[in-house]
Amino acid sequence: MSSRSNILAAVLANQPDNSPLPDVSIFNDLYTSEDAVERFIATAMGIGSSVHRVAGIDEINKVISERFTHGPVVSNLSGINNALAVDDDNYHAADVELSVFKVRLAVAENGALWLTEEDIQKRVLPFICQHLALVVNAANIVGSMHQAYERIGNARYNYGTFISGPSKTADIEQSLVLGAHGPRSLTVFIID
């Protein structure tokens, strides 16, 4: 017999009687969306992100031009000054200074933003760039992870990731260092 059938047979023989699933919908309404933006900002800043509430693309460009001047900028958002399109062939991912992505979901309780392959096209881009900027509409910030997965629902995605803050490590004597392997900073723009 194959290992597959051996394992499945052993599991079937040894698994206990059915234990029912709990109702997890009880957690969905614990957090209102009213103060979600304020809570998102507090949490995101607490874990090392910088957050800007902006009216539109001009303010985003202003912040970017002041802070990121050392290399190529790549974005899925039109209107970012001097940005290359994600599918442009004229850059190496490893050289990217800043990636800017518009995303469709963010979570107040943990400062995380949800990106899918559809948003970013190249999976490695939000990781390999030196700095990352994510843009989200205020209306798309939900209170909790329960509400986030309610929004995601049965959506089809090939790859998706929650990103909360810059890449970090505390492996050396629990000293927090930003910029482990991925972006050294995360800038979040909230469009009201």
Binding site: N158, T161, I163, S167, K168
Partner: peptide, 12 residues
């Protein structure tokens, strides 16, 4: 931490 920095969902 409220969540890890990256929680990646690999599907395809």
């Amino acid at each position: 931490q409220p969540i890890t920095t990256y929680s990646s969902h690999f599907k395809t």
